[in-house]
Simulated scan of single mutants.
Amino acid sequence: MIPILTVLVCLGLSLGPRTHVQAGILPKATLWAEPDRVITWGSPVTLRCQGNLEAREYRLYRERKSASWITLVRPELVKKGQFPIPSITWEDAGRYRCQYYSHSWWSELSDPLELVVTGAYSKPTLSALPSPVVASGGNVTLQCDSQVAFDGFILYKEGEDEHPQRLNCQSHARGWSRAVFSVGPVSPSRRWSYRCYSYDSHSPYVWSLPSDVLELGPEDQSLNPTGSDSQRGLGRHLGVVTSVLVAFVLLLFLLLLLFLVLRHRRQGKRWTSGPAQLPTPRKKTS
């Protein structure tokens, strides 16, 4: 019994002297970032906390280290669960949670939100081994290289950012670093787009610029959708131009045919009428 009371007391103290939590009464808060949780340095972002319909107040926390910017948010926005950052910096990155106040109780803390700031370092290079064209159902190896010595890499699949692959590595003695990821199996009906980032493990939420996009797909699909669309668009334009040229040639042919018919008719009239008869001179009467 004593260990249970000790745990409850510790939980209460960790939330602060004014925080009262009664598990099971209030649903857990929901925390998300708009437009995204991975934000380029200097861009605006808003953390939004949502509770039940009777929520009267919200709180936002950053784990391990307090965030001074939270205290600068206007009270009317805090009451709505909105915590905007006009221009994000490296200092704002971190792991956040929130809770709301309703019916004299504070809710449980939300699930953590990892707010990541990118653009701190130069972009790495992402390549596929042996090729980005993969047999359907097969796996492929992706290699992320950086000219700077980092000990952490992130493989980010576009459209599915909830569970990016993290990989720790050892930097090379010459100052560069590399991480090797394995992805797959490749679906025959889908095309995948990947980017990779590098970071220092001492600042896991501050990433480099993203690498160029690398597209993976099965052998029977093109790996450049933009190029395919442009080729289809070019084909449509060529088809229109060809149709116009054909119509123009047909019009010229019809005009030439009409000219020849009219000319033939005129020549036919001349042949049928014959040469004009000269008037006979009158005889002189004596």
Rank of each mutant, 00 (worst) to 15 (best):
S122E: 15
K123R: 11
P164L: 15
A179D: 08
C49R: 05
S243E: 11
L216M: 08
G175N: 05
S14H: 06
G159H: 08
T141S: 13
T71A: 15
R191I: 14
T242N: 12
G24T: 05
R95Q: 13
P218Y: 03
T89Y: 06
L26H: 03
G16N: 03
E219H: 07
L5D: 15
L260F: 07
R64Q: 11
A173G: 08
W271S: 10
S189N: 06
T280R: 13
Q143R: 14
R18S: 03
Q99Y: 05
R97L: 10
F83S: 08
W271H: 08
E91K: 04
P130L: 13
G24M: 07
P218A: 06
S87T: 14
Y101G: 07
A23F: 08
R266Q: 11
S68Q: 10
D200A: 02
L26I: 03
R64C: 01
L223E: 10
C169D: 08
S198K: 03
K157H: 12
P188C: 08
S243M: 06
T30C: 03
F83Y: 10
P275A: 05
I154V: 14
P210E: 01
G274P: 04
P27Q: 03
L15P: 02
Y61F: 14
K65R: 15
Y100Q: 04
E215H: 11
L155Y: 07
R195P: 01
P27G: 02
A179V: 06
A179H: 09
R64G: 01
